[in-house]
């Protein structure tokens, strides 16, 4: 797997600072699990943040600090994590897998996903989160077929998990990450060979431009 499309600085900054909501963060963090280069950039941002926190001028040492230290001192036990690292499942579920944090949201591999037909040969699988501001789902596009043309009312993040697609911005294979916004109208087409499975996060329902899809959109709940 060679990754060609990475997370932008401005999106990564929101993730590094903690301001990025749950839905977007699932796509960002899952890409990072696959991409050492983006993790390196993230750790540089966190290093910059560490320096900024160190640069905060706190009030000079005070009685409060002594009281605070005494309180914490009381609570310190033996460092609890030592020698008992949390047990981890050593084996992945059967089938094609995705990394954390997405895997826990899916609750299994890509082969056990319960797909719902979207029409035009495409399928989707909504993913539940506690973030009401975003829609998170998997999309499955048949090999060689287009995703219905759509514009966005807001941001859309796409992470390729299987297969590949091509659009105005290039070729996106496994691990590649695409960010689009309201100005972009793109026409992704799955590459021939195998179905393309993507994680797609949007902040508003997609407005499909095909009339038929638009008519049935309310019925599909997309």
């Amino acid at each position: 797997m060679t990754i060609h499309h990475h997370i932008s600085d401005e999106l990564m900054l929101e993730y590094a600072s903690g301001s990025l909501e749950e839905g977007w963060s699932i796509a960002v963090a899952t890409h990072m699990a696959l991409c050492p280069e983006c993790r390196r950039r993230l750790s540089q941002m966190e290093a910059a943040a560490g320096l900024l926190v160190e640069a905060i001028e706190a009030a000079p040492a005070s009685a409060q600090d002594n009281a605070s230290w005494a309180a914490l001192r009381q609570r310190l036990g033996k460092p609890s994590s030592r020698g008992n690292v949390e047990p981890r499942p050593a084996v992945l579920p059967e089938g094609r897998n995705v990394p954390e944090p997405l895997r826990s949201y899916l609750g299994g591999s890509l082969d056990t996903v319960k797909w719902r037909a979207l029409g035009l040969g495409a399928y989707h699988h909504p993913i539940r989160t506690s973030d009401a501001a975003t829609t998170v789902r998997l999309l499955r596009i048949p090999a060689g077929k287009p995703v219905p043309e759509h514009g966005h009312r807001g941001r859309e993040l796409t992470l390729v998990l299987c297969g590949a697609f091509r659009d105005e911005n290039g070729l996106f294979g496994v691990g590649d990450f695409e960010e689009t916004d309201a100005e972009v109208e793109h026409q992704p087409i799955a590459e021939p060979g195998e179905d393309c499975i993507c994680l797609a996060v949007t902040d508003a329902p997609l407005k499909f431009r095909s009339r038929i899809v638009r008519i049935i959109q309310p019925l599909l709940g997309i």
């Binding site: 899952t30 699990a33 696959l34 995705v98």
Partner: peptide, 15 residues
């Protein structure tokens, strides 16, 4: 409530 979804370096699917 949801915290901050993060990657897990001990995950077998982590690169």
């Amino acid at each position: 409530k949801s915290g901050r979804p993060a990657f897990d370096p001990s995950d077998p699917a982590f690169v």
